[in-house]
């Protein structure tokens, strides 16, 4: 089989994104998960933002239910990606199960940048599979590394995790309205921290998404 231009893009995205798996492995262990649980987390959930959020909620003292709910809320966009990809992939049975599992930001993102349907499929499977491989490999390395570290604060891990979140959300804040919504979510969550159980302040900001998304007005 010939190597196509899309293969190189898939590889470089897979590797780069996979590297952040190390940050997840470290964050999970810092939050109290074992190395084995961190690895299983990446294998099963396989959705970066959901994973970071879930261990973040646990790390700040939240319940398992809040952690799972937060992870589900961040995972809903994968359902939308699935809607987008299903008519292109046309899978049934076990193939649909496997395709669903690798339906993430990167696989969908690279697929919809292609012009031909054959390239779209190729980009989707190569990127989905590639990220899966590297993400899980680096989760293991990050978890083992963090396990050897001891006090996470002494290594700056407690700041690295929110910095990684900020890096994820930053590119979307170029619009003034989104920037204001982001600030509002921060202030709202912090105002709730002393008053409600851990984990709730983050989930409660869903209300802000519903209020501002209800009517159309500048946001696609």
């Amino acid at each position: 089989m010939l190597i196509r231009p899309v293969d190189r893009d898939s590889f470089s995205i897979s590797f780069t994104v996979g590297l952040y798996g190390a940050a997840f492995g470290a964050a999970a262990v810092a939050a109290g998960f074992s190395v084995w649980q961190a690895c299983l987390f990446s294998l099963l959930t396989f959705s970066g933002a959901s994973q970071f959020a879930a261990v973040g909620v646990i790390g700040s003292g939240g319940s398992a239910i809040s952690a799972i709910a937060t992870s589900a809320l961040l995972g809903t966009r994968n359902a939308l990606y699935g809607l987008r990809m299903a008519p292109i992939l046309k899978n049934r049975g076990i193939k649909r199960v496997l395709a669903a599992h690798v339906t993430i930001d990167e696989s969908t993102g690279l697929a919809i940048r292609q012009n031909e349907s054959a390239d779209m499929k190729r980009a989707f499977y190569l990127t989905g599979g590639g990220v899966f491989l590297f993400w899980n490999l680096f989760t293991l390395l990050g978890a083992l590394g963090a396990n050897a570290i001891g006090d996470p604060s002494a290594w700056g891990l407690d700041a690295a995790v929110p910095a990684a979140f900020l890096g994820l959300v930053w590119p979307r804040l170029t619009e003034r309205k989104l920037f204001l919504i982001s600030i509002l979510a921060m202030v709202f969550a912090l105002a709730l921290v002393p008053n409600v159980p851990a984990g709730i302040p983050v989930i409660a900001t869903t209300a802000i998404a519903v209020i501002f998304g209800w009517k159309s007005g500048g946001i696609k």
Partner: peptide, 29 residues
């Protein structure tokens, strides 16, 4: 409407996480 809300969800959730993980220590700021 679902798509608009869904676009905003990651932004508000990640923003809230950034704030909470930077300033919260258990139930204290």
């Amino acid at each position: 409407r679902v798509q608009r809300i869904n676009t905003l969800l990651p932004i508000v959730l990640l923003s809230a996480l950034v704030a909470v993980q930077t300033f919260a220590s258990d139930a204290k700021l």
